[in-house]
Amino acid sequence: MEELIALLSEICPSIDFENETDLVDRERIDSFELVAIVSTLMDHYEIELDVEDLLPENFNSAEAIYRLIESRRG
């Protein structure tokens, strides 16, 4: 989890990933950043993510992203 947050913060330094829970819904991250995040995750965790995974509920918080990664790695 810490690893993930560090990773995310590197992409979007201005966002508090520990506490935000509305990243997509309140447009805290934009589409460019989302694509950057997804690409980084795929590289880093060596998982396959699809456009179908790009649902707000999957990216609204670091926690949700973590769950998504877990589900793909499992």
């Binding site: 589409s31 694509v35 590289d43 456009v51 790009l54």
Partner: peptide
């Protein structure tokens, strides 16, 4: 456009390959 063009294209095979290559 974002949901149905931008994301699919970004994660489509050619652009993913381009991304890996670029990185």
């Amino acid at each position: 456009m974002r949901d149905y063009v931008f994301y699919p294209l970004s994660f489509s095979r050619p652009f993913s390959a381009l991304g890996r290559f670029a990185r």
